[in-house]
Amino acid sequence: MKYYAEIKVTLKDGIKDPQGLAAETVLKRTGINESASIRAGKFFEIELEAAKKEEALENIQTICEEVLSNPCLEKYEILKVKQV
């Protein structure tokens, strides 16, 4: 069966995000919003074959831990897993 997943990878708390900080500076300068805090992250879509949902989930977790994120720096969240 084919499964589809959506993954969000973001920097761990406490690690400065230069992209977010740059965007915040612009927001303040333009007056769009003075209080907004922005953190940039990455979004991934995965499609894979698996016999059942548990197997798909296990594979997706391995992909997240080994390929899409580095636990020293980032955390990941599986936003959605569904059969397609």
Partner: peptide, 17 residues
């Protein structure tokens, strides 16, 4: 070497982007 964990820590985007 950091990604393979042969050395500790990690390197990421420069603070000035």
């Amino acid at each position: 070497l950091c990604e393979t964990k042969l050395l500790p820590g990690v390197l990421t985007t420069n603070i000035n982007n």
